[in-house]
Design a protein around this nucleic acid. Structure first.
Length: 870
RNA sequence: GGGCGGUUAGCUCAGUUGGUAGAGCGCCUGCUUUACACGCAGGAUGUCGGGGGUUCGAGCCCCUCACCGCCCACCA
């Protein structure tokens, strides 16, 4: 039955194999180790929790491929390995989605009320929350699916509350009126990190503010005249000759009539605008700072709904939107003749990353977290190298941000999330993990920034604050795998919280992987038509428009590449650098899996099912392939350990194609066909170690092949790799390398001489380095060994350590062969000349390391010998 | 304005202690050699962004210029 699957499929078909094997991995329980021992002997990774409502994208696919490669390697090293899995409640993103749905149903969260709304989000989560988890399974990720976490689960929520209360008691968390980034789109304050700049063209108005003395006016430039109602001063640079005499004087705010002091502040640029700046502390972050420096009040005229309100707002503007107010105020200023001029002005303006709305800086009562003291130890651990970033440059980025850290606004005016463990009663404030005793307490309606809870992920998922066995066994975790965009939002905060609450760093290595761009270099995005769904790549689906060669051309469909191919392809593409997605790498991976599948067919369909693997080599090529296997195993394992996944992936490809298939299997075929039992046993051994070697990088196909190997037990995913496959056998390596070079020389010569590929030529090997491999040399060169007396040779092919003389001359194009030979001679002569030049350079001989000089001498000798043989 | 990174074959990218430039795809020439045509064999292809320096020797180290990304902070 199983053998027939091999027989029937000369092409490897991942679509049948992969779902079956993914299930087997999970059902085996191998991804769900019971806690034991401590974290120094175990291996763990906490997944960056995807948004609960999210769908898999290319970033997840790469992120998962990397983590799975790391955990599979750790398992092969015999470590107890836990890949912590879960999802994030993603406050704003999730609430927005559900609200959108409600809107479609003609209702709203306000209509439902908080309790019902939250219940509705929970059921939404039940419906869609498992989708991304299923997609992660499809990738073959060997995460702990039996132990899924969610950032709003009760134990997790208790950890969050515990942390908040503790930080409050330590004085890090506090409530304050402060200018925040107000997002009118979500109706909430957001943190600095959730703000992005977008380019906008506004009108810059130059407005004259009359001086109280009646002698002239000061002109200020602004793009937001509606905020002038909240102006409290005019600032100029103290060095500015134009305005020096006005400092200390008073101007009159048009329309309102309020007196504005003219103050001096270094912040004001003399070469921008008019050099005079209206100060509106209630609606501008810089003005807020300046206002604080000068002890100014900060009245506000815009409310949280984006409409005009407040004591300073004249009746006729009250309730207008900011846009309406701007129009009205500009009209009045025009009527007063106070607008000197206006010009188009393109500048960047902060917008909410989530809702896309233009940020309205507002003074508002929010909860904040002071970060500077928490940052200090988090800076130290990176400087001391306890936490290492890969690539290193990202560590500098982290430090740069940490050293300039600012307070973090942690309250959000949402319903979906961790509600603040804070209660108020008149002037009293109570902060605690449970509600206070007594009547009249009202809980703060706000929830915490999602990243506040994510910051606890590596330890809250393991049961903290309880001292659980999980925590002991798997915390600190080992590696944290992520992309650049959340180094500040998430990574930095995990380090700070981890150190503060567990006394330990949460992970020792941070691997920052590539961002995969669209093939044209733009970012991947559904709305741009540049996004590629990894599942379309795996199972075969439509190519996005970005793949079309011409605008109206149909880009067609992806073949069903399978998860192995997508994973290997992404790993091979990726580095520390952002890269453009290229389908060729996925194709290359598909060819790799197919190649390995067919190599396995060659072996498995020929061996006696009673045969069992044996590491006993028979011939020199056996010792060679064992050495090559050992070499490749070390290379790949080291590369993975150093987070060089591209190198690991390409090394595997190189081994399977160039060494195993192109040479070893071709060398061993005669013995395989002759039903040689010892050879069969060795081939099973080589195949077993090869699939073990490849398993972290292409887990599905290797697992499938392993299942067909006679005598193989259990799952490959559970197999501990041998510490050493073989001793490196230098003699065997040299012999086979010489053989390969000789065969290649013969083939190249045949090609040049236009010898029919099927023709077998009489020939004689003149060299003593092929004692153990001559039969192979004749066979692979399509030569017939013949000892002839005298000088009957029609051609002499130079090979390492000697030459091969070809006797048959009939039908040979000796002219072509001679040209080939001449070219080779010229090439050799050029290289000899270069080597000689180098060696006659006294600087080189005297100053280069002796080993390098010696190597150069040896090379020269070899080149001369080769030329001689020619 | 500050920071990080990039510029290598037609395309996408490797190149880890400085020692004669690599891969995949594409291209050219052959081959139905019973594991694989998602294959096999052979082949062509690079003033390693420009300039300067260090060195016996530089794609790799230093300086400088140019261009391209991204991040942070921003001028009303």
């Amino acid at each position: 039955m199983r053998v027939s699957a091999l027989e029937d499929n000369p092409r490897y078909d991942p679509s049948e194999v992969e779902p079956r094997i993914a299930r087997a991995w999970i059902e085996s329980g191998l991804t769900h180790p019971e806690p034991a021992g401590d974290s120094s002997e175990n291996y763990s990774i906490a997944i960056p929790p995807p948004n609960v409502t999210g769908v898999l994208h290319m970033g997840h696919a790469l992120n998962n491929a990397i983590q799975d490669t790391l955990v599979r390697r750790a398992r092969q090293q015999g470590k107890r390995t836990r890949w912590i899995l879960g999802t994030d409640h993603a406050g704003i993103a999730t609430q927005t989605q559900v609200e959108k749905e409600l809107k479609g149903l003609g209702t709203s969260r306000e209509e439902l009320g908080r309790e019902q709304f939250v219940a509705r989000v929970w059921s939404w989560r039940e419906l869609y929350g498992s989708r991304i988890i299923e997609q992660i399974k499809r990738l073959g990720s060997s995460a702990d699916f039996q132990n899924e976490r969610f950032t709003l689960d009760r134990p997790y929520a208790e950890a969050v509350a515990t942390v908040f209360v503790d930080l409050y008691k330590k004085g890090y968390v506090y409530r304050d009126r402060y200018l925040v980034n107000w997002d009118p789109g979500s109706g909430s304050a957001i943190s600095d990190l959730e703000v992005e700049d977008r380019e906008v063209t506004d009108t810059l108005y130059y407005i004259n503010y009359p001086l109280a003395s009646g002698s002239g006016s000061v002109t200020v430039a602004t793009v937001r005249p509606e905020t002038m109602l909240a102006d409290v001063a005019i600032a100029v640079n103290p060095q500015d000759e134009r305005y020096k005499r006005l400092i200390g004087e008073t101007a009159v705010l048009p329309i309102v009539g309020r007196k504005l002091k003219i103050i001096a502040d270094d912040y004001v640029k003399t070469d921008f605008g008019t050099g005079a700046l209206k100060i509106t502390p209630g609606h501008d972050p810089n003005d807020f700072e300046i206002g604080n420096r000068h002890g100014l009040a900060h009245p506000t005229v815009i409310g949280e709904d984006g409409c005009m309100e407040g004591d300073e707002v004249p009746e006729r503007f009250f309730g207008l939107t900011t846009a309406q107010a701007q129009t009205a105020i500009v009209a009045e200023l025009d009527a007063l003749g106070l607008i000197e001029r206006r010009e188009e002005y393109t500048h960047t303006v902060p917008h909410s990353q989530r809702s896309g709305s233009r940020i309205e800086p507002l003074i508002s009562l929010q909860w904040f977290m002071r970060m500077d003291e928490l940052a200090r130890p988090a800076i130290e651990v990176v400087k001391r190298g306890e936490i290492r970033f890969h690539p290193e440059g990202q560590g500098k980025v982290y430090l740069n941000w940490m050293e300039n850290i600012r307070p973090w606004c942690i309250s959000r005016q949402l319903w979906w999330g961790h509600q603040l463990p804070v209660w108020y009663r008149r002037d009293e404030t109570y902060v605690g993990t449970t509600a206070p005793d007594g009547d009249g307490w009202e809980r703060d309606p706000d929830v915490l920034d999602t990243w506040f809870s994510s910051a606890l992920w590596p330890f809250a998922t393991l049961g903290w604050p309880e001292q659980t066995a999980d925590l002991k066994a798997f915390y600190p975790t080992d590696a944290l795998v992520t992309s650049r965009d959340i180094i500040f939002l998430w990574v930095a905060r995990m380090v700070m919280m981890g150190i503060e609450f567990t006394g330990q760093i949460p992970f020792s290595d941070v691997y920052v992987h590539s961002i995969i761009q669209a093939p044209d270099g733009r970012r991947m995005s559904k709305s741009l038509g540049t996004g590629i769904d990894p599942l379309d790549l795996i199972g075969g689906g439509p190519r996005p428009p970005v793949f079309a060669k011409a605008p109206d051309q149909d880009p067609g469909e992806f073949p069903a590449y399978g998860a192995d191919a997508v994973r290997w392809g992404l790993l091979a593409m990726s580095s520390g650098q952002d890269v453009r997605f290229n389908e060729e790498k996925v194709l290359q991976a598909q060819q790799l899996t197919n190649k390995l599948w067919n190599a396995s067919r060659l072996i498995l369909l020929r061996v006696d099912p009673e045969t069992r693997a044996s590491a006993q080599p028979v011939r020199v090529e056996d010792r060679w392939i064992l050495s090559r296997l050992q070499y490749a195993a070390t290379l790949i394992s080291d590369a993975i350990g150093q987070f060089e996944f591209s190198r690991a992936a390409l090394s595997l490809y190189e081994f399977i194609f160039s060494e195993l298939c192109d040479w070893y299997l071709e060398l061993v075929k005669p013995r395989l066909y002759e039903d040689d039992k010892q050879t069969q046993a060795l081939l099973l051994h080589v195949l077993t170690e090869t699939v073990t070697l490849g398993h972290p990088l292409i887990p599905f196909v290797t697992e499938e092949i392993y299942g067909h190997i006679p005598g193989a037990s259990g799952l490959l995913a559970e197999r501990v790799a041998p510490r050493q496959i073989a001793q490196l056998d230098e003699a065997a390596i040299i012999q086979i390398d010489d053989l390969i070079a000789a065969v290649q020389s013969v083939r190249a010569w045949r090609d040049a001489a236009e010898v029919k590929p099927s023709a077998v030529l009489d020939a004689r090997v003149v060299s003593d380095v092929y004692a153990g491999t001559a039969d192979q040399l004749y066979r692979l060169g399509r030569l017939n060994p013949k000892e002839l007396n005298g000088t009957g040779a029609g051609a002499s092919i130079p090979v390492p350590g000697g030459s091969i003389e070809i006797f048959a001359t009939r039908g040979l194009d000796l002219g072509a062969a001679a040209r080939k030979k001449a070219a080779k001679r010229a090439e050799l002569e050029a290289e000899i000349k270069r080597a000689e030049g180098k060696l006659s350079n006294s600087g080189f001989v005297d100053q280069a390391p002796p080993a390098v000089v010696e190597a150069e001498r040896a090379k020269l000798a070899a080149l001369r010998a080769e030329l001689e043989a020619l």
